[in-house]
């Protein structure tokens, strides 16, 4: 007998996360099945960043990112790797630096402007903090630019509606799952707003949902931001 003797039946909605389009926050319920399916989808994304059995990915995020982040956490386990977490905020930037030093992660993903601001405010040298990490993944353009300026090679993570695209180690384009999501540019064949449609069942469906992200679809499964 540990903790409680039994639990109540879980609800249909695994949780209410969000999709952010510009300044608009859209509550986004997801099911356990959605989470499991996204997990399967993200396993090859993490593997393409070099995460493998015995490795560790440090995911820098906020709780409001949960529907995007939880599949990565579960995917790490499917690769035989561990994950750790730090908040994506200037207040918690010290944790990102500390866990990189203590845990020696293979991948650090989710770094944005706020984390870098927090590190700089604390007098940390950005190159020294991130140089030991084989794969550093930025969550916004500002962080990608600033980290690259220090001489680091930086990959990109982009949330597109309720899913994610990640840049692997060996490609300049970002990779998403074309078997589960159809992503189009509003300006066909060129850069425009990315719109997304789910190809498999989701608790909250999207039908040419306008993501507010700008980019160009190079071929199904590959895109670049603009």
């Amino acid at each position: 007998m540990t903790f409680a003797a039994a639990y109540e039946d879980p609800p249909v909605a695994w949780g209410v996360g969000r999709v952010v389009v510009g300044d608009e926050v859209i509550p986004w319920p997801v099911s356990m099945r959605d989470i499991d399916d996204e997990t399967e989808s993200m396993v090859p994304r993490l593997a393409a960043l070099g995460l493998a059995e015995g490795g560790l990915v440090l995911i820098v995020s906020l709780l409001s990112d949960t529907i995007h982040v939880y599949p990565f956490e579960q995917a790490a386990g499917k690769l035989g790797a561990l994950y750790s977490s730090a908040d994506r905020s200037p207040f918690d930037a010290f944790r990102t630096a500390s866990l990189i030093r203590q845990l020696k992660p293979t991948v650090v993903m989710g770094i944005d402007r706020r984390v870098l601001d927090g590190l700089v405010d604390a007098g940390r040298d950005l190159y020294e903090v991130f140089a030991p990490v084989p794969a550093v993944v930025a969550a916004d353009d500002d962080a990608a630019t600033r980290l690259a300026a220090t001489g680091l090679t930086v990959r990109r993570w982009l949330t597109i509606g309720p899913t994610s695209a990640l840049q692997p180690l060996d490609d300049d384009a970002l990779v998403y799952d074309p078997t589960r999501w159809e992503i189009e540019s509003s300006n066909v064949g060129a850069s425009g707003e990315l719109v997304i449609t789910n190809l498999v069942d989701r608790l909250t469906p999207c039908d040419r949902f306008r993501t507010g992200r700008r980019g160009e679809v190079l071929e199904p499964g590959l895109l670049r931001t603009t």
């Binding site: 879980p10 949780g15 209410v16 906020l62 709780l63």
Partner: peptide
């Protein structure tokens, strides 16, 4: 979820108080 409820994820941050 163990008590059969649905979590609503909100940040413990000033930027998220409005949400």
């Amino acid at each position: 979820r163990g008590i059969g409820a649905t979590p609503v994820f909100v940040d413990h941050q000033p930027e998220d108080i409005g949400t």
